[in-house]
């Protein structure tokens, strides 16, 4: 059992109190107060720009559940989240595994190349991809000899957003998996070698289980960030064609900052908050159960 170490001196106590004080103040101002305001706002017809604030009970929630665009945006968000997370993990793990191999040369160069999209501003990347998707002069149709209006065809628009997001973000997973792989104990691999395990068996029964904490971190942080994704939609499709690429966070942005229905947007935000919390708990539970 972890035993608490008594604080050494008065100055240490002061230091702790100051640090905790700032942290509590920060969390109160930037987290607790906004969440309370959003909870209260979700029960009001609320537009802070013309100072409208009228109690309407649960009307915003009733409207939310009967609003077709809400359900479409939730379905899009689940698809977007699931596909991007799967590709991010698979690509990230595969490339990290390759980069960690003893046969691999110029590791630093490849690490830099793969990480470069991650550090490039998202808005800039989204604009470049928007041009690449243009059906008349875009790179993608011209290179592959296709005739697809990527961002204006509801069959392809969400796929186009997913492809851009995977390209932009897989480097983050590469770096995390690589650091995870580099920290794995070598004696496990030596034992496996002595026991005659082949490459696949080593990966399946040693590498993968040992990488589980990294995997959990990548999956959970990805889910949280993709439930909040709206910049690619804003830049590339504005939710269109029609509402076919609305993601839940873009719907919040649209309702709050384009339609000025802050109360309705607050209700949707709270729903997303609860959903994110549920996903996170499930992820922890699943991994925890597997570990035990």
């Amino acid at each position: 059992m972890f035993k608490r170490r008594p604080l050494q001196s008065k100055s240490e106590v002061w230091m702790r109190n100051i640090a905790m004080g700032f942290l509590i103040l920060y969390m109160t101002i930037f987290l607790i107060i906004p969440v309370v305001i959003v909870i209260a706002g979700s029960f009001h017809q609320w537009n802070p720009l013309n100072e409208t604030y009228k109690w309407i009970g649960i009307d915003n929630y009733i409207r939310m559940f009967s609003y077709p665009t809400f359900w479409q945006s939730m379905a899009n968000t689940v698809i977007f989240c699931a596909v991007v997370v799967i590709f991010r993990v698979l690509l990230g793990l595969a490339i990290a595994y390759a980069l960690n191999s003893k046969m691999m040369r110029h590791k630093t160069l490849f690490r830099t190349i793969f990480y470069m999209p991650t550090v490039t501003p998202l808005v800039a990347v989204a604009y470049v991809w928007k041009i690449m998707y243009n059906p008349q002069f875009g790179l993608i149709d011209n290179i592959f000899g296709l005739d697809i209006n990527w961002l204006f065809d509801s069959k392809f628009a969400l796929i186009a957003l997913i492809a851009m997001t995977v390209w932009k973000d897989f480097g983050y997973a590469v770096i995390l998996f690589l650091s995870g792989l580099m920290s794995l104990p070598s004696d496990c691999y030596e034992s496996a070698g002595i026991d005659g395990a082949n490459a696949w068996q080593t990966f399946r029964y040693i590498t993968l289980p040992l990488l589980k904490p990294t995997m959990l971190f990548v999956v959970v942080t990805s889910i949280i960030s993709y439930l909040q994704a709206y910049v690619p939609v804003l830049v590339m499709t504005e939710g269109g064609p029609g509402t076919s690429t609305y993601l839940s966070s873009y719907l919040v942005y649209d309702q709050a900052f384009k339609q000025y229905n802050f109360g309705f947007a607050s209700a949707i935000s709270l729903f997303i908050l609860v959903l994110t919390a549920i996903f996170t708990v499930i992820s922890f539970r699943v991994t925890g159960a597997q570990e035990s």
């Binding site: 077709p68 204006f152 065809d153 509801s154 939710g239 269109g240 064609p241 029609g242 509402t243 076919s244 384009k258 339609q259």
Partner: peptide
């Protein structure tokens, strides 16, 4: 108010690009 243009934009994109029925899109 901006809601008129915003929702007509959605409706016309639904009709032109998503093949939605004119009556349904405009009713929404």
């Amino acid at each position: 108010p901006s809601t008129v243009e915003n929702n007509m934009k959605i409706a016309t994109e639904d009709i032109l690009y998503n093949g939605k029925d004119v009556d349904d899109a405009l009713k929404t």
